[in-house]
């Protein structure tokens, strides 16, 4: 944690701590939100909501967890609430559930002018939700396993394994039919 943030929190200067937290975590919260919600506008709203919740809850932050861990947990919870609003049957416990996979449907894919790219994004969307999320976040975070593990609140090994399985499956799905049949 930034020592200045830590000092303000220790002294009970929560408003000043918050003023430093926003530039430190704003973009990371947004990237994590986008990896879950897959929609820029919804991710920005979730980022606002997360930071408002952080502001409200900051006086109760006891420092037992790292500040980043705490903020990412609030972010994930905010996004799951948003997914649940979209479709009430999203499971909080099973990210691989069919409901969770289909809950987030809006995909910011940009202009449809590259068939290979569009096909790959469609294939990515067919993976289990937690694998999709890990892949999106991995590239948003410039291929940093540590950043993905921190944001998802998972051990490093679990993240590596998720990414391994996701990309292996993508390669299998993306292979031309003649290669698969060979």
């Amino acid at each position: 944690m930034d020592p200045a943030i830590q000092a303000h929190l220790a002294a009970g200067r929560h408003a000043r701590a918050f003023d430093l937290i926003v530039p430190e975590f704003r973009d990371r919260v947004f990237r994590l939100s986008f990896s879950i919600l897959k929609d820029r506008s919804a991710a920005e709203d979730a980022t606002q909501e997360t930071l408002v919740r952080v502001w409200k809850a900051l006086p109760g932050f006891d420092g037992r967890a790292a500040l980043g861990t705490w903020i990412y947990a609030i972010t994930r919870n905010t996004c799951l609430m948003e997914l649940r609003k979209r479709r009430p049957t999203v499971s909080f416990d099973d990210p691989d559930s069919t409901e969770a996979q289909h809950a987030a449907t809006a995909i910011a894919t940009g202009p449809a002018e590259d068939p290979e790219r569009d096909n790959l994004l469609r294939l990515l969307d067919s993976l289990p939700a937690n694998q999709q999320q890990a892949v999106r976040l991995f590239y948003l975070e410039d291929r940093s396993y540590d950043a993905v593990a921190a944001a998802l609140g998972m051990p490093l090994g679990t993240v590596k394994n998720l990414l391994f399985r996701a990309r292996k499956r993508l390669m299998e799905l993306a292979r031309p039919a003649e290669v698969q049949a060979a």
């Binding site: 704003r26 973009d27 947004f30 986008f34 820029r40 991710a43 920005e44 980022t47 910011a108 894919t109 940009g110 590259d114 290979e116 790219r117 790959l120 994004l121 990515l124 892949v135 999106r136 590239y139 948003l140 291929r143 990309r167 993508l170 390669m171 993306a174």
Partner: peptide, 14 residues
């Protein structure tokens, strides 16, 4: 695959 994903995935900003 790595290169395609890096290029294909959107990188939105606030």
């Amino acid at each position: 695959l790595d290169a395609t994903l890096a290029a294909a995935l959107p990188r939105p900003e606030l």
